[in-house]
Design a protein around this nucleic acid. Structure first.
Lengths: 144, 144
DNA sequence: CTAGTTGCAAATCATTTGCACTTGC
DNA sequence: GCAAGTGCAAATGATTTGCAACTAG
């Protein structure tokens, strides 16, 4: 019941918010869970929902602040959002097809903590993204 | 002699290009070698150089293509440039004062290659940035 | 009822581009 | 001399904001 999450975030349970969270949850289960605000907006349109792009941006930003959603800045301008799955992970992005895979490597995490500690930095977050080209078999869908 | 680098990049040796490269070289030696296009533009203005912001953007982009300069996308919108020092490194950024330190960890690099290989990705580049707060003693200059 | 939300249009910010005017080579 | 480069103003694209009209609690 996603309305609980919205309420818990201190936000009113409104149609736009419910619909947007719904979209994100559907995408979460798909191959294509990393989306731009524009993507969400188009998904809403295709479901006949009359929700403005400005609202999509506002809601995604509020969801981010509430920890429901994560925002990433991959190469290429637009912000990319995904539902917060609770567990940290990094990304590997195919520059040809845009496909995004997730990974998490404890050795890397540990190294980062060590580096930060050695330099007297208190880590608040970090972002690691590998860009490359994925194998032909997987690199099929050429979107955008 | 920086004009050599410009010529080698297949670009005409013009005043704006020389001046911009000069600025970047001076900054390179300083504590503050990661700069926005706007920063470079202001540095030029303070040296009485009449160079337009559009040109700064154009030149930085050309320098990037030529491998003279690296462009990073830290949090906060603007692109950040630095002279290409020839050796890869990652960044650790203080969210309070904006200070940037560089680091490079072979273990992390190796892990990344391993991960990419396992997933059939051919790495073309990667970006790792740690965000945090640095120790009080170093976190002095509150710029911008 | 009323503070929080939304939609829309206009504003903003970083960056890019069109074009007439220079300037290296 | 002429292609390449520049300045400026206008265009762009992503995101944000002002504000009057709505709606959840």
């Amino acid at each position: 019941m996603e309305s609980q999450d919205i309420r818990k975030a201190g936000l009113k349970v409104t149609l736009p918010r419910v619909k947007i969270l719904e979209i994100l949850e559907i995408l979460e289960a798909s191959e294509h869970k990393h989306v731009t605000a524009e993507d969400v907006y188009r998904a809403l349109l295709s479901k006949e929902e009359e929700i403005g792009l400005a609202t999509v941006y506002r809601v995604l930003t509020q969801f981010e602040a509430a920890g429901l959603v994560e925002r990433h800045h991959f190469e290429g301008g637009q912000s990319v959002f995904e539902l917060d799955q609770g567990h940290h992970h990094d990304h590997i992005v195919c520059l040809q097809c845009g496909r995004v895979e997730e990974f998490m490597d404890q050795t890397i995490e540990d190294c980062q903590s060590k580096i930060a500690k050695k330099r007297g930095f208190e880590i608040s977050e970090h972002s690691l993204t590998i860009y490359g080209t994925c194998v032909k078999e997987k690199c099929q869908y050429r979107e955008k």
